[in-house]
Design a protein around this nucleic acid. Structure first.
Lengths: 350, 350
DNA sequence: CTGAAAGCGCTTACAG
DNA sequence: CTGAAAGCGCTTACAG
């Protein structure tokens, strides 16, 4: 490990002042073209790399975004993260990621470490616990503190900040409508992520469609620690279920798996629609009809929204108060029709 | 957004010097207990949060780890990332992540941004292109520069740094052996990640087992841009294939899907063993027998290895040269027997 | 026990 | 066109 090369060292080598070297490297017109190129050449030769910490300290910005997601394993979040990383990268931002594991405390801790000036802004999807308890103090603190915050997917209207989401209510209603129209009579709503905002929206959309079709809604919640099949199968039998709207990809797949193992034919006996468009649903047999949650797109938009907010902050350094109001981006979304439903109404299948 | 509170501001409020405030906050025994508590109280009251940038600049360490993975979507990397994040978090480290998208150039660029002093060390799994071309300059530069580097899964023996992996050769041989022992006669090796180190090892292990059983090896490579089924099905027919060792989870699943759709019974007509232990294989019908790649564990070990290396660097500030030699961690691994193979030899099934 | 000073590596008004 | 100086927010020898 050689001694790190700094401006000071270059200056010594060149018999110039640190200021001149710095300005040259930053292509300041103050400095003669000749000096500039002399400096740059030596810098290159010595593999000079500016110290980002020092630059950030001076500029009071870090060009990094803090990202907090509740869980990295579901493909929705994996894909969202991918969208975030690539969009941020292209804009010259790095991302620091924390996983809250659905815990408010971990969420608050991560947020706290972001307060020390290592990030310019924050992108977050709320932990399940946070949505259940609606404890938002730690988030309001961030907002008060003045660090731009963008929520995605699991959002809260009580927080005064930008947000990105899909219209879960509407698309769930549409998905349920479609199952009705394809002949399903007994459609249930199945969720393992209950008490999240998205779950509630989807459930309401489902209920709306059920009402419209004069069908009683039936909601089945299965906790992670419960035996999935043992909970699901009796319901399928007792309710003569012929349609399932599943709030997440994994439970859609597990439903199909359980049903098929017990003699159901999909989609003849049972239609299934899930959420998220991941590999698992795409490659299952039968492949899963699913709501496209636009994971990557949500991530991308979250970054763009955040960055434009950061630029606003730059412009009007002082009169903070007239920052434009928070924007709520709601993405249009579609159902991807595959093999787990009958009569695809739209053309798309695979 | 209120004015940020700094040591200077606290000092002003308390009528003390900045030094004293700093020392108090750091619980220096130099300072009287009374002053210390007075300072801390006020700091708390004012929500003082030390500026991490300034601290890092001073200490010349950032408590953050740079992570580069080739692709975030395969569950192996998702899980590895999870292991990295949680282990790092517990040890008080943050992680900055970059995705190389299997490209050497992107890998090199990301590495370069890590050189600016924002990370203390780096964890990386090599891009496919990097392994294909064996261009390692950008990595050697990091090593020369003195930033600790730990490779995992896709590693290279030509790089003088710590590494974490499983014994791909041995476990692939074992998986093939098991298929032979369960009665398979025509086992092929299928890969979509060819030219990676892990692929080569697995292929060699497979070939070894084939030789042992006096069977001709047959290797099928399918590129991402090729039609999977069209490439696979003729081979299955022509070679009377009754066993597939698939180098990754997705191609194992796609094989099963294609085979089942075309009338094969699994595992009666065709046994399949994959790599990685992800949701997709676990929940497919039939569930996939698979090599446990210990993704999370690899991530965890990578962090631990890196951190212990960082601590060494701390201790002997100067005599760098006698840093202990790189360590190669090779994790013991097992095959998880599920429904896609016959006669599970070990007990485990689900 | 407290404080003045130097310094981490930069940038940028301000002089000359 | 070049440089001395101040400052970003901290920590830590060193004086007193």
């Amino acid at each position: 490990m050689e001694q790190k090369v700094t401006l000071k060292k270059l200056a010594g080598l060149l018999n110039l002042s640190i200021s001149t070297v710095s300005k040259s490297l930053n292509d300041s017109p103050e400095i003669s073209a000749q000096t500039r190129s002399r400096v740059k050449q030596l810098a290159l030769l010595n593999n000079y790399i500016p110290n980002g910490m020092a630059q950030s300290l001076k500029a009071n910005k870090t060009k990094t975004i803090g990202v907090i997601i509740p869980n990295i394993l579901p493909s929705f979040f994996t894909k969202a993260l991918y969208g975030i990383e690539s969009t941020a990268g292209k804009a010259g931002y790095r991302i620091i990621i924390c996983i809250s594991n659905e815990s408010t405390q971990k969420e608050a801790e991560s947020l706290k470490t972001f307060l020390n000036g290592r990030v310019d802004g924050i992108i977050l999807s709320l932990a399940k616990e946070t949505q259940q308890t609606n404890k938002l103090d730690h988030l309001n603190r961030i907002i008060d503190y003045g660090i731009p915050l963008v929520l995605f997917d699991r959002i809260s209207n009580e927080l005064r900040c930008d947000s990105i989401s899909i219209d879960d209510h509407k698309i769930a209603e549409k998905a349920t409508d479609e199952m009705h129209e394809s002949g399903c009579r007994n459609i249930i709503y199945l969720s393992t992520i209950f008490d999240t905002s998205v779950d509630l929206q989807r459930q309401n959309g489902y209920a709306m469609s059920q009402a419209k079709h004069r069908a009683k809604p039936f909601v089945l919640h299965i906790r992670d620690d419960e035996a999935f099949e043992e909970k699901l199968l009796p319901v399928l039998a007792e309710k003569s279920v012929d349609g399932i709207l599943a709030a997440d990809e994994l439970s859609a797949i597990r439903s199909m798996r359980a049903a098929i193992k017990h003699g159901y034919k999909i989609p003849e006996d049972l239609s299934v629609i899930g959420f998220t468009n991941g590999f698992m649903g795409e490659h299952f047999l039968p492949s899963l009809s699913t709501v496209n949650q636009h994971a990557e797109e949500q991530g991308k938009l979250a970054v763009e929204t955040l960055i434009s907010r950061l630029q606003m902050d730059n412009d009007k350094t002082l009169d903070i108060k007239n920052n434009p109001d928070p924007v709520q981006h709601i993405l249009e979304t579609l159902i991807i029709h595959r093999e787990s439903t009958r009569h695809p109404l739209a053309g798309l299948s695979r």
